[in-house]
Design a protein around this nucleic acid. Structure first.
Lengths: 109, 109
DNA sequence: TTATTCCATTGCAATATTACGATTAATTGA
DNA sequence: TCAATTAATCGTAATATTGCAATGGAATAA
């Protein structure tokens, strides 16, 4: 175990969970927030900015990249990262649709 | 390790991550979705509905309850769960504010 | 009381995640 | 060419998560 039984859930539920999981670590939230804040691509200063070891940041970037939320471009000896607008929008819709549900009735308990 | 270094991140980033993490498992997504769908409290049929062992469901419910997203009421020999509207709204705002950010400029890469 | 039902908790095994030092690969600058 | 810089990857340790069988506690039904 330790592995989620994804096969018993719908594609939709698995997809919501996959995106949510990627946002489920403060370092990844901080990375994404920084990319939004500086509003351009980030080349190299993420390690300083976030305050974790280089290997650790690289691992978090890999998670975000593998989901498509960010993309990286090699610029000489450094790599520049930025939000992938298209996939970010896709994630936004999937998560929003889920969390913006409202109860039609009062909770009974 | 295996433990996130939450102390180096802002309260806001940690809070976003905490909520996102709770939504980061398809079983918990399915549980919440079911609670919205039937639009009232659920007494006892979650194990059948989701298809995991009773102990496993109980554990997922505990995660959701400890974050305040759901609440449970004892009704005789069973327990009824429902969405906690107040905390759900709080989560909704926190997550929405984060994911609804838009880039002012084109990505440079 | 005794059996039953429902659910939480405990204990455990398998796997995943987080973090980092060390190494490697690629590029640039001298 | 050779050092320096940057970031990915490897290896490893510590901890967290997932899942389930077994157990236990609380309420109900007989």
């Amino acid at each position: 175990m330790g592995t989620a039984k994804t096969e018993i859930f719908s594609t939709q539920h698995n997809e919501i969970a996959r995106f949510a999981k990627a946002l489920g670590h403060p370092a990844r939230v901080a990375i994404l927030q920084h990319l939004f804040k500086i509003n351009t691509c980030v080349c190299g200063d993420l390690v300083v900015e976030i305050g974790l070891a280089q290997a650790t940041i690289s691992q978090h970037l890999k998670v975000l990249k593998s989901l498509g939320l960010i993309k990286g471009n090699v610029e000489g000896t450094s790599v520049c990262y930025c939000i992938d607008n298209e996939n970010w929008a896709k994630m936004k819709h999937i998560i929003s649709n889920f969390i913006n549900q409202d109860l039609n009735t009062q909770s009974c308990c």
